[in-house]
Amino acid sequence: MKKRSATDVLPAEGGLGNEPLLTVDNLHVEFHTRAGIVRAVNGVSYSLSAGETLAVLGESGSGKSVTAQAIMGILDMPPAVIPKGEIRFHGTNLLTLSEEGRTQVRGERIAMIFQDALSALNPVFTVGWQISEMFRVHRGMSKRDGMKKAVELMDKVRIPAARQRVNDYPHQFSGGMRQRIMIAMSIALDPEVLIADEPTTALDVTVQAQIMELLAELQRESNMGLILITHDLGVVADVADKISVMYAGRIVENAPVHDIYKAPAHPYSKGLLDSIPRVDHKGQELYAIKGLPPNLLDMPTGCAFHPRCPYRQDNCVTDVPPLYEISGVRSSACHYWREVLDGSRG
């Protein structure tokens, strides 16, 4: 096995202590563009333990993907800048790790799958080559052994006739199969954390369910921590343990998954839940959150959601709400979370 320099700075797997597996602490990410500074992530904190599934929810531009890319260390810097915050993996801050150290963590201990598997897979190499590359580069395996491993993995993610298809190219697979290949590649080295960035958005509804099932199953088997990034509340209900809802680069609500479905404590989460089409509302007009997501170059004062919020009071325009603790596991960044909670219970 190849010597990994990351083990010099990171404790081996299992040596957890009291720290959760992965902690994002007050993370800020800015993009310095010609038009100005885009504050994509403004003080995001969340944590993930082994075997746990965290769903990060939010619309496009809420900063959920940027946070994930910061964890992976795949942001283009510049234009991206991380002025503040820590990302601790086994207690070690990844942001201060050397590039070599990060390369050892990437793919090996924290892996990621992406939304569109067709563009995320390299078109000119066979899927077997791309999967086995993990073993060849990280483990120093021979081509033959790497390919054997690739076939095993493709079997594991239930790609039919894996032995025959290992030498096919990505464009020869269907969308669902391509995403399975992405998953096979990401779990190749048994990572401790898997980040799935909208893994089912580009797929048919039936295939979506299969992929989510596969992810949940793989997670149970290996006790990975799973961060599931999505804008689809329907997708996460069955698989997630806890949910963090993001809006305009901030977390607006943290909650165990069942609590939030029962009674959201932030007007934005409530809006998201209300906009899911429901069979018993057939014939009625679909609910939509009024207004548009904020311009990240010119953020509203106070609470970023106030221009769209039905619960707005005067102080929302001026005071940025902190994350109010509701219970040990729940928090909401709304001055009027009590009213929202009561309203959604009522």
Partner: peptide, 17 residues
């Protein structure tokens, strides 16, 4: 700028590769 380059980086491939 392609997505598969981002994937390769996320796989932990060294820059030269």
């Amino acid at each position: 700028r392609a997505d598969y380059i981002r994937t390769a980086v996320a796989k932990g491939m060294p820059r030269s590769r």
